[in-house]
């Protein structure tokens, strides 16, 4: 029995590792390409072993990608902070207070989250063209709020619901004011949820392409949009593309390691409690 189960464990492990390798192979290949010299890049048959080079990095930096990186970071952080400031009280009130037509409003928010970004980008483009928010930092941050705010509110609401109302009632009876209850009781207990959800929001903003592509431009150009710069007259600079791809993976990796328990909860909109 003991032996049989350990064989089963071994088989399952082997299967899982093979699957993981299949899943991760493209990612690893891209990471390897970062250090691949241009002369073996397009070799047929494929060259698996080569002397690593940092030349790809040099070109990327030369092209001013550091600026794009900073823009990406700043956009992600700024729009996420906006979302947290506005979304936290909203999520809390959705979870706690009886509001008229709450359900319908909520469904609408959900639907706006569900709507294809293309649906949103058209009105945004026209409105922004009128009010002069095209190609501005603020404009793009606001646009990110359309999908991130509803996501944040929805997921954080599920965290709020996990808090027993009685904790807040006990504090009210002790004589704390509503604001104090929020600061002393609700906020500390929600902190994990807020961190996890807002980091996911940051990733969504970081990964976003269409809004940035349409509503951004020359002065506001986050990383994903900057990639076309690498498509030169001499052809696509694949090594450099790989560098940008890998750089854009770094925060993703950090999130995966730090927040794995919360990712499922976030991406299933709170349906699974990790």
């Amino acid at each position: 029995m003991e032996q049989k189960s350990s064989i089963g464990l071994g088989l399952r492990t082997a299967a899982a590792v093979i699957c993981a390798l299949i899943v991760l192979f493209p990612v690893l290949w891209m990471v390897a390409m970062v250090f691949k010299p241009a002369d073996v890049m397009f070799a047929r048959p494929t060259v698996f072993f080569y002397t690593p080079t940092l030349a790809n990095f040099a070109y990327v930096i030369e092209q001013g990608f550091v600026n794009n990186l900073i823009t990406s970071l700043a956009l992600g952080i700024f729009s996420t902070i906006l979302v947290v400031i506005i979304g936290t009280p909203a999520a809390y009130s959705f979870a706690r207070f009886e509001l008229k037509a709450k359900e319908d409003l909520f469904l609408f928010i959900l639907a706006s989250r569900m709507a294809p970004p293309v649906c949103l980008v058209i009105p945004f483009y026209l409105i922004y063209a009128k009010v002069g928010l095209l190609d501005t930092f603020v404009g793009l941050s606001l646009a990110y709020m359309t999908f991130n705010l509803s996501f944040y509110v929805w997921v954080l609401r599920s965290f709020c619901r996990d808090l027993p109302v009685e904790l807040e009632e006990a504090a009210i009876l002790e004589g704390w004011s509503k604001a104090q209850v929020f600061r002393r009781i609700v906020f500390p207990l929600l902190r994990n949820g807020i961190v996890a959800t807002s980091v996911l929001c940051f990733i969504f903003a970081w990964n976003e392409f269409l809004f940035a592509f349409m509503l951004g431009g020359d002065s506001v150009q986050p990383l994903p949009v900057a990639i076309p710069k690498l498509i030169t007259a001499q052809g696509v600079r694949w090594g450099e593309v790989a560098v940008v791809g890998v750089v854009s993976l770094i925060p993703v990796l950090a999130v995966v390691v730090l927040l794995q328990r919360h990712i499922v909860r976030g991406l299933t909109m709170g349906a699974v409690k990790g």
Partner: peptide, 13 residues
Amino acid sequence: GDRRVAMMFESYA
């Protein structure tokens, strides 16, 4: 908050 009524909740809270 103004009543100064202390309540011990069933769940202890």
